[in-house]
Amino acid sequence: MAATRLKLNGLGLYAIAYLGFLYLPVAVLPVFSFNDSQYVAFPLKGFTLRWYDELADSYGLLNALGNSIRVALCVSVLSTVLGVFAAKAVTRYRMHGRGGLIGFIMVPLVIPEIILGISLLMTFSLSDVRLSLVTVGIGHLLLCVPFSMLVLISRMEGFDRSMEEAARDLGENAWGTFWRVTFPIIFPGVVASLLLTFTISFDEFVLAFFLSGSDATLPLHIWSQLRFPERLPSVLSLGAIIVVASTIVVFVAEFVRRRGVQLAPPRA
């Protein structure tokens, strides 16, 4: 066993140093969220939970959190449904211009978000659509669909097509085949897509900045708080909560993925 242990050569040390760099900002949030001082500076002044108390009392925050969850839920479900359709189309049918079509759906990933945001803003305002959480959701959907499609394509490419054919031969119709054969097999991909797109929408700021009406999403609420130095520590405590929550989500997602791999070996 000792032989397989991590060798700490130069590269290993670099890897650890680089991880330190990646985790530095993430560590700052929780450390200073428990610090009993208005200012985010060393030396630490002592332990307190008051910034968390302050957070719980903030009406704007809870409201924004609710808005973000609603938008992210709708966007993740819609995006995953579209992703399943699209992934099935490009993996199951020989189509003319397949690569071009996939590339076309991926375009929102390679356009600066600010340009995506203002072009949608212009479209909505010139066609008299009132800005609301719905318009934010439309922007997020555009950003999320490529991710759903990528995740689901990789899942669908993995499994054996003959299973679907067997179901058809045994008399299932197209719908039955999908629900009883395809869906259970791609289920881990569906979960991954839901989690990924939920997180993207939940965290998205620039599009929401341009496309929201009077209702703020959580990132917009955070942005509005950053202007007030006295709110700073409670913003840090909010950040710490997000760090912990998203870490849990990532591990749950990995757990689901591993079970999925065990239940349905991707390649026969």
């Binding site: 991880l19 990646l22 985790y23 530095l24 900002p25 993430v26 700052v28 949030l29 200073f32 985010v40 997180t199 965290d203 700021f205 959580l218 990132p219 955070i222 942005w223 950053l226 700073l232 913003v235 840090l236 909010l238 950040g239 997000i242 760090v243 998203s246 870490t247 989500v249 990532v250 591990f251 990995e254």
Partner: peptide
Amino acid sequence: ILVTIPFWTSYLLRVFAWKV
């Protein structure tokens, strides 16, 4: 997973953390 965890937290707060 270890590498990606920092990126699952709010983009805004990560940038803000650098300001701090």
